[in-house]
């Protein structure tokens, strides 16, 4: 808990953090609001789109696009510590390398909690506003989607943390992170059979928030094999642990 307190000391007065978080909130609200205004065959889609309980899955799917933003934020926070040489100073002052990684992982968890709570709030707002069904089973029926989203966000940010610790420079680390998540691994997916690539990190994390209406798409194209969100939780948690461990070894083997 002390580690989180130390991190909050650094983050709370940091304007960039607030700008990025505000951007996340604004874009998410904007998309949801815009979505409610889309009309199809003369009727607004809001009621259908935001019908509970399916809303939770749609919501987490939309939010999953912003994981990159969280990742970039984490990379900046990690690479700042190299730039300011404060990793070194913290070790001199008494923290161990494991605690340095743990402290940043606390930030990752805190950001994950923030994102999840925001989705909960937005889901309740839009759901109760547009959904006809307000029964408890409708509201909380598929709310487990939020827990999948939480693990996904933490997974993305853990990978970003690893890139930050590994590469040191924020610009380079951000490029490498996006390139891996959006280009390198998807290219690998083409080369590998589905049975293998469904266990790769980006695909595992992606399958935590499946595309709404994937069944329909699958009928039109060849279906890709994906883990169900519940099944993906296990490898996702494993990857998070692995990214933390690799971050730790990066610091272990390096002069600060």
């Amino acid at each position: 808990m002390n580690l989180l307190r130390i991190e909050l000391h650094k983050i709370l007065p940091y304007r960039t953090v607030w700008v990025l978080l505000a951007l996340f909130v604004f874009l998410l609200v904007f998309i949801l609001y815009a979505g409610s205004k889309v009309s199809f065959n003369g009727s607004e889609l809001g009621g259908e789109l935001y019908a509970l309980p399916a809303l939770w899955q749609r919501l987490t799917y939309i939010a999953s696009y912003f994981n990159l933003l969280f990742g970039i934020l984490v990379i900046m926070l990690v690479s700042d510590e190299y730039t300011f040489r404060t990793l070194r100073q913290q070790v001199i002052n008494g923290l161990s390398r494991a605690e340095l990684v743990l402290a940043k992982f606390c930030v990752v968890l805190a950001l994950g909690v923030f994102g999840t709570l925001l989705l909960l709030l937005l889901g309740l707002c839009f759901g109760l506003l547009y959904s006809a069904d307000h029964s408890l089973s409708a509201v909380f029926g598929q709310i487990d989607a939020l827990s999948y989203y939480f693990v996904q966000a933490v997974g993305y940010m853990s990978l970003a943390m690893l890139f930050g610790f590994l590469i040191k420079k924020s610009g380079l680390a951000i490029v490498a992170f996006i390139a891996y998540a959006k280009i390198v691994e998807p290219l690998l997916h083409f080369r590998l059979p589905d049975a293998v690539d469904k266990y790769m990190p980006m695909k595992v994390l992606g399958s935590l928030t499946p595309t709404p209406g994937q069944e329909l798409i699958d009928q039109l194209t060849t279906a890709t094999e994906l883990l169900s969100p519940a099944w993906a939780m296990l490898p996702a948690t494993g990857y998070i642990a692995l990214f933390c461990l690799l971050s730790y070894y990066t610091l272990r083997l390096r002069d600060l």
């Binding site: 130390i6 000391h9 304007r15 300011f84 404060t86 100073q89």
Partner: peptide, 17 residues
């Protein structure tokens, strides 16, 4: 080695923690 955007006091609080 300190956080440039934090005040002397805040930086010292981090060290104290």
């Amino acid at each position: 080695n300190f956080y440039p955007y934090l005040s002397a006091q805040k930086n010292m609080e981090i060290v104290a923690d």
